[in-house]
Design a protein around this nucleic acid. Structure first.
Lengths: 291, 291
DNA sequence: TAAGTAAAGAGAATGATATTCATCTTTTGC
DNA sequence: GCAAAAGATGAATATCATTCTCTTTACTTA
């Protein structure tokens, strides 16, 4: 009957571990363990199986999780509404972002926003486009950065057209060509980004009807930048990822222009808390002034 | 953070009084008073104004009530899901009904259902068609009786065609006529039902393009039955209200047939608890065998 | 195979909460 | 002015939540 137990349960499932959940929620591991035991006892159902190195949902836990997580989400909304009612410039805004936004925008956004509203706090969740949309839809986050068009019906705002660029080591024989010839993409050794579920680069190659000579594959974009910079091959990335690159690089446009449309979205603008709306407005202004 | 507080608050608003809410929830008046004080203290907002003879929502309370009541509704759904998971023949089914169903069907339905599933409990709420649809949509009840077509998008099942009948005192000069002539409706003194928000009888008169000679008005259908039976006038009622009438009456059909389609509805059949689905199935079978 | 590590569990202690009981206060209607 | 009905209050107590400390488990690595 106590929502803190529900929060402990939901967070534990998200983290896959009592210890991590406890850390995030500001409890001790023992506290979370007791709480979940008490919850299981209260409803008379085993929610988690405890193994070495973590916990996993039981079938029953899986069925019940949506109720608990929706209750927690409503609780958060209620709390934010209370803060709005009290006219306070405080609140907690939960944001979903993907890699390039996390790296290139978030630190500056939070800094400039924090100067305007020092009492509004943040929780940042990192994921891919699909995950972020899911978090927004389920109320796990208040708003999130998206690739438009979104798959789900959300309130969205377009922010930035992010162009795909070819990156080469400085001094590469073709570094002088701008735009970079499509044909050359098939000839130079290519460093592939290991994308999880979104196949953005492949979509570009498909559209160009060419196939790159993949030499290496890497998961981290910083790794790719380093590899390209050191002459191991060429690669392609959205322009946004190339700002403030610590490695010397040459960036060139493609013959055909490919863009991803980056936006920000939430479940419903009118239902959002004042803090969330303020953050949204700030992001739009900040990006407009960006570059 | 404790849902019992939320339940206390929601129920108190519904009842308009700490004392009544306490009675319904099985607490003392003092307990509810303390709980609401604690809730107000916890969120730092005054939710209720306490006046002579009851309580009333503040503006803030009104804004926050939907969150609390939705959390309570989810809590109830979660509890029912737990019971389903445990495969128990137990549960609490909350039903919205309107007058004729409450009087003519509910007692028999509950009795026969109770013989099959003695451990399933009920909470019955009485209201008009609109209120009931609202309760279903908001999750205040699990299912409810309706006049079809429903205004909102709900899962509904048609149960019964209820025909409007003219009722006369035994020995009335026109008691022998069947169907009862439309013209005569304008001539005999008529006892009007004081309907709250639904204007069903008026719709019938409008369709017939006649205007009755209203002699008396009464709120309770039992009162009308008694008045008609004692020769104070004639009236019109859905046939369902006339079953088991304690007063001697003559019932006659109209020249033109008017019916209301009575059904039962819920938010979503697949999401409903096993208890609710069992009750629904039972109602459908019972009504089919009815009369 | 033993030590190290990273998880979870259990029990006692204690501080915080929930709930009731009994007692007041206020308002309203007669 | 008094009874009835509603809410408020404070003390008492039982219950609960959380932490601390100490075990247990099982995988990893030397």
């Amino acid at each position: 009957m106590s929502i803190v137990r529900y929060q402990a349960f939901v967070r534990t499932v998200e983290c896959g571990s009592f210890t991590k959940a406890a850390l995030q929620l500001g409890y001790t591991q023992s506290g979370v363990s007791h709480m979940i035991n008490a919850l299981e006892e209260e409803i008379g159902v085993l929610l988690l199986t405890r193994d070495r190195g973590g916990v996993q949902l039981t079938a029953e836990g899986q069925k019940l999780l949506p109720y608990f997580s929706e209750i927690c989400s409503l609780q958060h909304q209620m709390e934010e509404t209370v803060k709005d009612l009290k006219g306070l410039d405080t609140g907690l805004v939960r944001i979903g972002t993907f890699t390039s936004v996390s790296v290139q925008w978030i630190p500056f956004l939070l800094k400039s926003f924090g100067e305007l509203y020092p009492n509004i706090e943040f929780e940042i969740l990192h994921g891919d486009y699909d995950e972020i949309e899911g978090w927004i839809a389920s109320g796990r986050v208040d708003c999130g950065f998206l690739r438009l068009p979104a798959k789900r019906p959300l309130d969205v705002f377009s922010l930035y057209q992010d162009e795909w660029m070819v990156i080469l080591p400085p001094g590469h024989p073709m570094a002088g060509l701008d735009p970079f010839p499509t044909q050359a993409l098939t000839e130079c050794p290519f460093i592939q980004m290991d994308e999880g579920t979104d196949y953005e680069i492949e979509a570009v190659f498909d559209a160009l009807q060419i196939c790159p000579r993949v030499q290496y594959t890497a998961k981290e974009d910083q790794t790719i930048l380093a590899m390209v910079s050191n002459g191991l091959g060429i690669s392609m990335m959205p322009g946004l990822m190339l700002h403030h690159s610590p490695y010397p690089l040459v960036r060139r446009r493609l013959e055909r222009n490919f863009e991803r449309n980056i936006g920000i979205g939430l479940k419903s603008l009118p239902m959002a808390s004042v803090s969330t709306r303020r953050f949204l407005e700030h992001v739009r202004q900040w990006v407009q002034a960006y570059e």
